[in-house]
């Protein structure tokens, strides 16, 4: 199995996504309030820059450590599912390109957008989807790590996909797959706040020196 073949397939599914556009059968975006994610401005009264950066990252950690995010940053080869973070059913594995195994790729079930499931299990209201649906590479595994460890990991180009701090902030603030966390489809709890508020927390954290929590 060549990685290029898999990537070719991934490219195809992205093309399908583009063609589908505003596909019907796609979950309507839910109205999420920022009530449970404090805006960066709330941290301005912290005068110590390092302490403020740590506080900002801890707030952002409510998103980063949410099962919606960690489930696809597993420590092993298998994604997790649900708020209980149980192993994914059906059993799937990351494969060479983090998009599944040949014959059962992520795209075998996950399309370019969330899909509502109609009149089936009340515990499966939708199948999540995104044009870029895939697992975070193993070096970006977050499962089982403390927020401090994740913070150091995010800053380390060897473990963040070779990104600069600015690129990390940009990724967190605007990446579409990251944004899926705020629009995870019917029957799924979204991560707190909005991507905009989260992005601003990350931006200020970086601007304040990107200090990490101790644990």
């Amino acid at each position: 199995m060549s990685v290029s073949r898999l990537l070719f397939i991934a490219g195809l599914s992205a093309a399908v996504a583009a063609a589908a556009g505003l596909a019907a059968g796609v979950s309507a975006a839910q109205d999420h309030t920022a009530a449970t994610l404090k805006p960066a401005s709330d941290f301005e009264q912290i005068t110590d820059k390092t302490a403020r950066a740590v506080a900002l990252f801890e707030e952002a950690g409510k998103v980063i450590q949410h099962p919606r995010c960690v489930n696809c940053h597993p420590a092993g080869d298998k994604p997790l599912q649900g708020m209980g973070m149980h192993p994914h059913q059906p059993p799937v594995a990351r494969g060479e390109a983090d998009i599944g195994m040949p014959g059962m790729m992520c795209g075998t079930c996950h399309g370019p957008a969330n899909v509502d499931v109609v009149a089936q299990a009340e515990t499966i209201k939708s199948i999540p989807g995104n044009p870029a649906w895939h697992l975070a590479p193993i070096e970006m595994a977050w499962e089982g790590r403390s927020l401090g460890q994740i913070c150091e990991q995010i800053k380390d180009p060897a473990r963040n996909g070779g990104k600069t701090l600015d690129e990390i902030v940009e990724h967190m603030a605007h990446d579409d797959l990251v944004g899926w966390g705020w629009d995870p489809g019917a029957g799924r709890e979204s991560v707190p706040g909005t991507q905009e508020v989260f992005g601003e927390l990350m931006r200020r954290w970086a601007a304040d020196g990107a200090a990490c929590p101790k644990a």
């Binding site: 059913q89 059906p90 059993p91 089936q120 299990a121 009340e122 515990t123 499966i124």
Partner: peptide
Amino acid sequence: QSNFHDYRSIRIN
């Protein structure tokens, strides 16, 4: 229970 996600069937693996 309601479907194969919570009423599991044995699988090939």
